[in-house]
Design a protein around this nucleic acid. Structure first.
Length: 491
RNA sequence: GGGCCAUUAGCUCAGCUGGUAGAGCAGCCGACUCUUAAUCGGGAGGUCGUGGGUUCGAUUCCCCCAUGGCCCA
């Protein structure tokens, strides 16, 4: 059947070629956009024709309603839809023949005058029709749209055509990123680009993708985080830098995880994690206000308010608040027992800090619906953060949780090269994948030259976009989410 | 990695207890010069995800696999 439609349409294209019409011409110059025209003439009197108001519009044919020697249809361009009216006696016989070979899905140019139909719709009465591109395959159905999620992700272009809100989502995504850039530039942050291919994967705890550089003859890793390079820039003298770019993590795919995802990382010299808390709140509030005019949004039926200030609470206090377990004043064995009592399985060699983190992740995280800053993490799970100024077992680190999801991560950056080296070595000792972990001595060397005290912040852009577009899955905010390739027989 | 669910026409979906598959839209032919889910008439379109099993007979029951979704680790 698909083949049949394809053949019929290909045949139409051939007939047009025989008649001297190129079904794939080179250029068209529209003089109006659909949205602009429907807006401009929305108050036009019903039934009124403006024969002097002539426009050329271009777009994809989305519907056709034929009436013998006349027809209505809609075209869609980048701004919206516009109704077109085709009349045989106005088009002339030759153009009418061309019209009859149109299919839904074709791109056309249409030039004509404006009028308003009896039913009150601004319509272009076509006097000159140009085929701009013949579509050989049919579009998804007009009424129900495209629902098959597999096709929506694999053939995103069909999703965009059939489901208008998809374009809105990615439009909003672009706006959010633009706003973040604007905000940071106003605060004198410099946007930089650091390597995507690292010889030592660092800056986060995640499995990397491996690749190979032939000329150098070395294994390289797609970056899991830009952190260690951005901090080298602090050593070099840039005081405020940021990067918005892709990270790659060779881990599972879920509603919250795509192997490649976009991260904002920024570093500010002479600042600490308290400054990063303020900055994080400001960024979210700024974006929310500029997009919605308010700090309140609805995400998956829950109202979320980004208004400052957010709740700020230490991890230990959060665990105590939610579970009643006073981890700060308990010994290792008691915490282990508490985990067991809550049916939380723990690694046999877990440290106290890791146990507390387990309790936090399992029992507290899901409760953190409103934006919440969880601060003061156990040192053993945070090798790049500076120890808390009054507690050696903790680091000055916070994460932001929204709707139970980790959305940002920030530290007072560790700039003591001796401490950093010790923590790297300890990590290599403990990590299961120790053979993957190499100490980045080049980074240590950079710190040895002196890095100013600094605050650093990372925000998961995809997750942020999910909140602002009410997207249930990260795949809804990534244009081409990772899928298993289909075999060569196609989709 | 484990569990559950889905896969039927280009798209959206029906298909009961096992008896060789239906609708709407799209597309095709015809009628119709203000329709908008246009309408009316006619016809066409299917390896029921793949492979195996049970059965006289499988879209339907069972198993494997593939792809996707959700949940858990």
């Amino acid at each position: 059947m698909e083949n049949e439609i394809f053949q019929e349409r290909a045949e139409k294209a051939n007939k047009l070629r025989e008649a001297g019409i190129n079904p794939y011409p080179y250029k068209y110059e529209p003089t109006g956009k659909t949205k602009e025209l429907t807006e401009k003439y929305k108050d036009l009197e019903i039934g009124k024709h403006l024969e002097e108001d002539i426009y050329a519009v271009a777009g994809r044919v989305m519907s056709l309603r034929e009436h013998g020697k006349s027809a209505f249809g809609h075209i869609k361009d980048g701004t919206g839809l516009l109704q077109l009216y085709f009349k045989m006696d106005l088009l002339g016989e030759k153009q009418w023949e061309l019209f009859k070979k149109l299919d839904i899905g074709d791109f056309i140019g249409a030039k004509g005058d404006i009028f308003k139909t009896r039913t009150g719709e601004v319509t272009l009465r076509v006097r000159e029709l140009t085929l701009l591109s013949k579509a050989l395959l049919p579009l998804p159905e007009k009424w129900h749209g495209l629902k098959d999620v597999e096709i929506r992700y694999r053939q995103r272009y069909l999703d965009m055509i059939a489901n208008p809100e998809v374009k809105d989502t990615f439009y909003t995504r672009s706006c959010i990123i633009k706003l973040i850039r604007k905000f940071l530039e106003e605060k004198h942050f410099l946007e930089v680009e650091t390597p995507m291919m690292h010889s030592i994967p660092g800056g986060a705890a995640a499995k990397p993708f491996k690749t190979f550089h032939n000329a150098l003859g070395i294994e390289l890793f797609m970056r899991i985080a830009p952190e260690l390079y951005l901090k080298r820039l602090l050593v070099g003298g840039f005081e405020r830098v940021f990067e918005i770019n892709r990270n790659f993590r060779n881990e599972g795919i879920s509603i919250k995880h795509n192997p490649e995802f976009t991260m904002l990382e920024l570093y500010q010299a002479y600042a600490d994690y308290n400054d990063m808390m303020d900055l994080t709140e400001e960024i979210f509030e700024y974006v929310a206000k500029n997009i919605f005019g308010t700090t309140k949004i609805v995400y998956q039926e829950k109202e979320i308010d980004f208004a400052r200030p957010w709740k700020r609470i230490s991890m230990a206090d959060a665990v105590k608040e939610v579970t009643g377990i006073d981890v700060a004043n308990l010994y290792f064995e008691d915490i282990k027992a508490a985990c067991a009592a809550k049916n939380i399985t723990t690694a046999p060699v877990a440290t106290k800090g890791q146990l507390i983190n387990e309790l936090f992740e399992k029992l507290v995280e899901p409760e953190l619906i409103q934006p919440t800053i969880i601060k003061d993490y156990p040192v053993e799970i945070s090798p790049l953060a500076k120890k808390k100024r009054d507690d050696d077992l903790l680091v000055e680190r916070f994460e932001v949780f929204i709707f139970g999801r980790e959305t940002a991560n920030a530290f007072s950056e560790l700039n003591d090269p001796v401490d950093q080296k010790a923590r790297f070595l300890k990590q290599v000792d403990h990590e299961k994948e120790a053979e993957l972990k190499k100490v980045d001595y080049d980074y240590i060397t950079a710190l040895e030259h002196g890095m100013p005290p600094a605050g650093g912040l990372g925000i998961g852009i995809d997750r942020m976009v999910m909140f602002f577009t009410n997207a249930p899955s990260i795949r809804d905010v990534i244009l081409f989410p990772q899928m298993r390739p289909k075999d060569e027989t196609g989709v």
